[in-house]
Amino acid sequence: MTASIPGEAETVADRARRVVRASGMSQREFAARIGMDQTALSKGLRGTRRLSDTELRAIARVGRVPLKFLTSDAATPPAALLAAEERSTRLRAEPVDAQVRRNQILEATARLIAQRGFHSVRVADIARVCDTSPATLHYHFSSKDDALRDALAFYSERLHQRLAEEFATVSSPVDKLRRLIDVQLPASPEDVEEWSVWVQSWNEAMIQPSLRDPQRQAYARWRDVVLGLIRECQATGLAADADADLLATRFTALVDGLAIQLLTGTPHMTVDRMREVLLDSFEPHLSLR
């Protein structure tokens, strides 16, 4: 079985992905075996990063296939690879919970949009990464707009799950505000992906009114968390004379603006600088230092 779309020639990335899948290892395990960063391997298997000759040799060695299979469009798949793919196909043919499969497709779609951009992602790209057919994707998403809406919902839910985990480790609302700031920082590749979908949803909502309600709802849910924490602080006697709604507006505007500066490479804006500015954003009413 190949992961390529019918009618499209297999690429080096397609063949490398076949080898990794047939190995029976996770991408994390395979990356460790070949001494490669997992994110770099993932990008290479998706075709968004060129795999070097050294990396291809390592993939061939660990995957036990001839290097020629990876590098030559005319190479015949080795029998061992075909046998491993057949075993994998039988396993995937076993019943899979529909919601689990939908979540897998949703996560893959969200990450593709985050990494490549909404307008650059084709249905065929999503199908290839999900190892499924375009028809299956149309069952889950009737249009690309639906895919963007669901991608935003995916990252919004992930944000709130992370916040819940962080808030469970502290008790005071001031400490929760500090944790909120840390979670909002675009400090890791996963954070950047999340921010990418947020920013793209704003862009599309400006042009397409049908996308505005989902974006507003997701944003309002996050803003309510901020406002709720400020009011918790006021309930303990802190910032008693402050306009909580105005403080929430100021903070959320700063978060958005600083993140966009950081993501677009604005000079002098760093993750540490963004954190410092946000820690002072509630002054003089509330000190997070």
Rank of each mutant, 00 (worst) to 15 (best):
I126W: 00
S42L: 04
A244F: 01
K68C: 01
A110R: 12
E283Q: 15
W202P: 05
L254P: 00
G63T: 03
K68H: 14
H138C: 08
A60I: 04
Q184S: 11
A16P: 03
V199E: 14
V96L: 09
E10R: 06
A205P: 03
Q99W: 05
V123C: 11
H138R: 15
S42N: 06
L247P: 04
H268K: 09
W202E: 13
A58V: 01
D213C: 10
A79C: 07
F30A: 02
L177Q: 06
S156Q: 03
E86Q: 13
A114M: 12
L56R: 06
V12G: 01
K176Y: 02
A164Q: 06
P66L: 00
H119Q: 15
R178K: 13
W222C: 13
E166T: 03
D191M: 02
C130L: 09
P77I: 07
D97K: 00
A16D: 06
A242W: 10
D97G: 04
A114C: 12
M206I: 08
S52Q: 05
Q99V: 13
A220Y: 03
I207L: 15
L56Q: 08
R61K: 08
R212K: 04
Q261M: 13
D191Q: 10
D191C: 10
A108F: 05
E204I: 15
Y139L: 05
A13K: 04
D37M: 03
E190L: 12
A239M: 02
E194G: 15
A60K: 05
A22E: 01
V277F: 05
D280Q: 04
L211E: 03
A110K: 11
S287I: 06
D37E: 05
C130E: 04
W195I: 02
W222G: 10
M206D: 00
V183P: 02
E204W: 14
F69R: 10
G44V: 00
L263Y: 00
A74Q: 14
A240W: 02
L70A: 05
A127N: 01
T2N: 11
R275K: 14
R178A: 09
L112W: 04
P214Q: 00
I105A: 13
R158V: 12
D191R: 14
I230T: 00
E276Q: 15
N103C: 11
L106S: 10
D224K: 15
F141I: 05
P284H: 09
E190Y: 07
E10L: 10
P77D: 09
R273C: 09
P284M: 14
Y219K: 09
S287G: 08
P189V: 01
M274C: 08
E157M: 04
A84L: 01
H268C: 10
L67E: 08
R122D: 12
A205D: 06
V121E: 14
R289Y: 08
A259C: 13
E10Q: 15
G257P: 04
S210W: 08
S281W: 05
R102G: 14
V183K: 07
S188D: 07
E193P: 00
P214M: 03
